[in-house]
Amino acid sequence: MIDRRTLLKAAGAAALVTPFAGFSVRPALSQEAPVFQFGIIADPQYAPFPPRPGGTRYYANSLWKLDTALKTLNEEPLEFVATLGDIIDRHWDSYSDILPIYDQLAHPHFFVLGNHDYEVGQDYLRSVVRNIGLEKAYYDFTGGGYRFLVIDGNDVSTFAPPADDPRLEIAAERLAKLTETGAENAQPWNGSLSDEQFAWMEERLASAKAAGEKVIVLGHYPVYPANMHNLWDSEQIVELLTSHDNFVAYFNGHNHAGNYGAIGNQHFVNFKGMVETPDETAFATIAVHDDRLEITGHGLEESRSLTIG
């Protein structure tokens, strides 16, 4: 088995997201060939610590699991790979251990940030986004007739904004109001979108529609079906997404058990957490066809065939 020292010696410098020029649809080799494919990883949640009592969250094992997953993904004709948040579990130094492993990936890579990615101490909160090579925690990119929206569910939360940020007060008010209603997702480890980000999301959906693009959203937190791990503003987000007929799917992590829901032919897939077991991984590849998404699960992750309009 690969150990941490071997990985660090081989990995080199920390991985950064490089400018992405998108991708064009390639000629299909057959009628059954996908338009394009990409990879998904959720919740490596690495930290150099023993597992949680009770036999879950094998934090340190995510180094070799990620290494193995990336080697498998390198063998596939993918346009990109996305990690759906919780790259680490805690402590700033954990980034120095896991980010270099991504350097071996042969495909473009995109990060979504999760709640645990901000468990680094006040002095480092402003540096998290820059540390993983991003200019902003929410952004979009295009390719293959699709627009991918990467959203930031930590935007208005009780843990991601630094101490002097007015979003902390807004987050406290939102959480208190949700708690009063008895909502199951009124949890301090969840978050929500700022008004600015919500407006950006509306604009990007409309822009994609005007360009004839379908939309897939990548986030850390689930929004549907109802669950204790959902974003505080999940209902508003679902209403916005499903009001656009070019919205195809929402992919997320956060709930390590995984989940799935659909509203018509619009899909919400919660991918399982890589960190959960001592020796079984969890990641997936998605083949995009004109009429469906074919998800091929590896390890714990389930395979699914999702019809799209």
Rank of each mutant, 00 (worst) to 15 (best):
P27C: 06
R292H: 15
E276C: 03
E202P: 00
Q37R: 14
H91C: 00
T277N: 06
R304V: 03
Y138K: 05
S157C: 09
F80H: 04
G191F: 05
V248G: 00
V248K: 00
V223S: 08
F247N: 06
A42S: 14
A28Y: 01
E280T: 15
T83S: 12
D43S: 05
A14R: 15
Y138T: 09
F148D: 07
S62F: 00
S24T: 13
N252V: 03
K9Q: 14
Q45V: 10
P222R: 01
E196P: 09
D123V: 04
T6S: 13
V288E: 03
W200N: 10
P108Q: 03
L134M: 11
E119Q: 11
L306R: 12
L205G: 07
T6W: 08
T281G: 04
D93F: 13
E202S: 08
G114T: 09
P48N: 14
I170K: 15
N252S: 15
E239C: 00
R292V: 00
H254F: 08
D103V: 00
D279I: 06
G297F: 05
L99D: 04
H116V: 04
D164Y: 02
L125T: 07
G55L: 06
L178N: 01
E280S: 10
D67I: 02
R5Y: 08
G182A: 10
H244T: 01
I308V: 14
E202Y: 02
R5A: 13
E294I: 11
P34W: 09
L178D: 02
Q197M: 10
D43M: 01
F23D: 07
N227V: 05
H256D: 04
E196A: 15
V269G: 01
L193E: 05
H229P: 00
R174N: 08
P48I: 13
K136S: 15
I295Q: 09
L8T: 00
Q197G: 04
F283R: 08
W189Y: 15
T18H: 07
I216V: 15
P27Q: 01
P19T: 03
V217W: 06
Q266H: 10
A60S: 14
E75C: 00
A160R: 15
S243Q: 11
G299L: 05
V156H: 09
G55S: 07
A160F: 01
A60M: 03
N131I: 00
L293N: 03
A82F: 04
Y250S: 01
W92R: 09
K136G: 06
Y58K: 02
G144S: 12
H289K: 09
D279H: 11
